[in-house]
């Protein structure tokens, strides 16, 4: 049986004025998979997301989403066909309330006329309420997102991502700055999302990655160094050298 790959990066290279941020990167995600991506600073993790979401055009190679190439498509078009992204530092609209932030994220398919003339439909409002419940922000719906705490902003952004209903979620460092308890909750949330959605998580936090119980891809210098379960990764000598640090040195 041929496995269906929802995301397929083929020999992708990105060069910034001669510097290779990505170097012949190959990566495949099957539908419903939860995948963690780790790598040292400068390994190309964020560039890799930029290539998928259309912010950066690959110098070489191609990116396929559901069998169709994403290269050359505009960011908003890629978002509309089902690729959602959460940024490294939380990027929420600080001058809008929690409710308004989520209304934007659930309305991407509404026509402009509707956005101008109508309030969100009952369904959409219900969806917004549901999202606020998931991330525990129901009591803060009228509060400006700018006055939320860092952790709450992270969660709001995750809720905004869910609101877009993407079939592929790209999540960049979701637990940076979260408490241990919040980190656990986030891990559980991401785990529950996979299956129906395909989730790709980038993070540094080893405990968090372990908790995801997913396959791990290690990036280094713009290409894939190693792929496999967390245990396999942690025992791989190459990975230990570049990323985890040599144990015997400690």
């Amino acid at each position: 049986m041929v496995k269906e790959f929802i995301l397929n990066l083929k020999d992708v290279s990105v060069s910034f004025e001669g510097f290779l941020a990505l170097n012949n990167l190959n990566l495949k995600l099957t539908k419903g998979e939860l995948r963690a991506v780790i790598g040292p600073n400068g390994a190309g993790k964020t560039t890799f997301l930029d290539v998928i979401t259309g912010k950066v055009k690959p110098t070489k190679g191609d990116v396929f989403f559901k069998g169709k190439s994403l290269v050359g498509k505009k960011e908003h078009k890629i978002a509309r066909i089902g690729v959602g992204r959460k940024f490294q530092s939380p990027r929420v609209f600080e001058n809008l309330s929690v409710q308004e932030n989520l209304e934007i994220s659930v309305s991407q398919y509404s026509s402009t006329i509707k956005l101008i003339a109508n309030k969100p439909s009952e369904n959409k409002l219900e969806e917004v309420n549901k999202l606020m419940k998931i991330v525990n922000l129901s009591s803060k719906s009228e509060i400006k997102a700018g006055s939320l705490s860092h952790g709450q902003k992270q969660w709001l952004e995750i809720a905004m991502l869910l609101g877009q209903k993407p079939s592929l979620m790209l999540i960049d460092e979701p637990v940076a700055g979260l408490t241990d308890e919040e980190t656990e909750l986030t891990a559980d949330l991401l785990k529950s999302l996979s299956g129906e959605n395909t989730v790709l998580v980038i993070d540094h936090d080893m405990e968090f990655i372990r908790r995801l119980e997913s396959n791990v891809t290690v990036l280094n210098q713009g290409s894939v160094l190693c792929e496999g379960s967390m245990d396999k990764i942690q025992s791989d000598p190459k990975v230990i050298e570049v990323y985890l640090g040599k144990q015997e040195d400690l």
């Binding site: 959602g84 609209f93 001058n95 934007i104 398919y109 956005l115």
Partner: peptide, 26 residues
């Protein structure tokens, strides 16, 4: 309405509006 929220979104963080699936040019 939501149109106004999107305008404010464009002012504060235009790339984010793109990644939310809206075309800021329009």
């Amino acid at each position: 309405k939501r149109f106004g929220s999107i305008l404010i979104g464009i002012r504060d963080d235009e790339p984010r509006i793109r990644f939310s699936g809206y075309n800021p040019v329009l």
